[in-house]
Design a protein around this nucleic acid. Sequence first.
DNA 1: ATGACTGCAAAGACTTTGCATCTTT
DNA 2: AAAGATGCAAAGTCTTTGCAGTCAT
Lengths: 139, 139
Amino acid sequence: MERTTRYSKKRADILAAIRGTDCHPSAEWVYQTLKPNHPDLSLGTVYRNLVFFQERGDIRSVGVIKGQERFDGITTPHSHFICRHCGAVMDLSRTELASRIDRDVSEQYGLMVEHHELTFHGLCPTCIHNQKHEEDVLS
Amino acid sequence: MERTTRYSKKRADILAAIRGTDCHPSAEWVYQTLKPNHPDLSLGTVYRNLVFFQERGDIRSVGVIKGQERFDGITTPHSHFICRHCGAVMDLSRTELASRIDRDVSEQYGLMVEHHELTFHGLCPTCIHNQKHEEDVLS
DNA sequence: ATGACTGCAAAGACTTTGCATCTTT
DNA sequence: AAAGATGCAAAGTCTTTGCAGTCAT
């Protein structure tokens, strides 16, 4: 009945890779990043561990961006900004929303709200710059 | 240079189908819904028109839920609730967030915020009920 | 030894796209 | 007639999964 979890260097390194970056990586990014140190790493293993860590609450999905699911090693409440051009994901501190918003919505609509996601969309500083440059070229 | 848009009953019906439901449909849903009246409709046409309507701002993506992208025919600001069990998407009126939040975040972080998304996650009334029933059965 | 974890490759699910055909203007 | 829109099917991308072998306990 009990499922015991066993130690594996690969598993540990996958989690460490996600926690050690703020880029909100995809499965592919984790795979490519660990490949040098784990030449025999398999993408399937990465995917299986992403599921494993999500179920344990160690990581969270940030959603699917440009076709790839992205993950976050930080599980405390915060918001995100996603650049519509390059797909970059940035953390924003959550100062705007009261923590009671989940409870309020639950009561108002008769739902069981477990958490919420506040995501901003637009252009990141880099893409703002590049877009301006592109306009100059075109004009 | 100008690209002219031509009238097509299928295109019109695809948009009407999305606007005529509050289920935030997937491509597959649109396809199955229109199939009776358009026996020769192709999934490719649905996908192409979804892109077309998004570019024109007629519809918006709600994100990828359980592997399928979902769309919203309502483009005025509002929030969503997504049931983690059945994937249902519900509209919530946006009363919580001031409209200036986008500008505030833009200034604070040096980004170009174009819009934001506030999404609640949890269990919908139906799944709350079914989950209770399931617990009864298991106990 | 047992059961968990992994590599590999095949399979799956969803979406995109090339090309010939049909349609709107 | 010209250019757009569609059907069909192939291809593409990302993710999941079956199975045999490996590894931690």
